[in-house]
């Protein structure tokens, strides 16, 4: 079912051939959720400045369901017309390619669910540089951030080991 919905969004299934699909999106809760999720992922794929209006609304709903969560500060919502214009520029494969954005969205939602933003957290990463290595950590980190070696993807560089 989700593959078909994806295909419909990709224009791989003509709208006139998809009556049963559209009907099931209306009647099946799961199908309708999938439809909305795919659009949500698509919204995220269009970049940070072009999150759809529905994205924020749904996120707020989700956050409201969380007991102890503070609402995130209001972000700029781009008008629907601009979103549509962006959508036209996207390649046909974007809803398949949206999976990576989904991975980011999952992480982003996890970020939002924290009871309080912790600005000192990222600073701690940079400060935690106690090491007995003779190579200065800041240069090793800078090097790995732009030109990672194969093993550095799997084995944490010294800056993360405390």
């Amino acid at each position: 079912m989700s593959e078909q919905i994806s295909a419909l969004m990709d224009d791989e299934i003509a709208v006139e051939d998809a009556e049963h699909l559209i009907a099931s999106i209306h009647t099946s809760r799961q199908a309708s959720q999938t439809w909305h999720q795919y659009h949500l992922i698509g919204d995220a794929m269009r970049g940070d400045v072009a999150l759809g209006a529905g994205f924020k609304q749904k996120l707020m709903q989700k956050i409201e369901q969380e007991p102890t969560v503070l609402a995130p500060s209001a972000s700029k919502v781009v008008s629907g017309a601009k979103t549509e214009a962006l959508k036209d520029k996207l390649p046909a494969s974007w809803s398949i390619a949206a999976s990576f954005a989904a991975v980011m969205v999952v992480g982003w939602l996890a970020l939002q669910q924290q009871s309080q933003p912790n600005p000192s957290a990222t600073l701690e990463v940079a400060k935690a540089t106690t090491t007995s290595e003779s190579i200065p950590n800041e240069y090793l980190m800078a090097h790995q951030s732009l030109a990672p070696s194969t093993s550095s993807y799997y084995i944490q560089s010294v800056n993360y080991s405390e």
């Binding site: 991975v103 992480g107 996890a110 970020l111 957290a121 990222t122 990463v125 940079a126």
Partner: peptide, 15 residues
């Protein structure tokens, strides 16, 4: 193709 999310942990973006 999705990360395992641990709801007990805090998630932060790296610099």
């Amino acid at each position: 193709f999705t990360p395992r999310i641990d709801s007990k942990k805090n998630y932060v973006m790296a610099d």
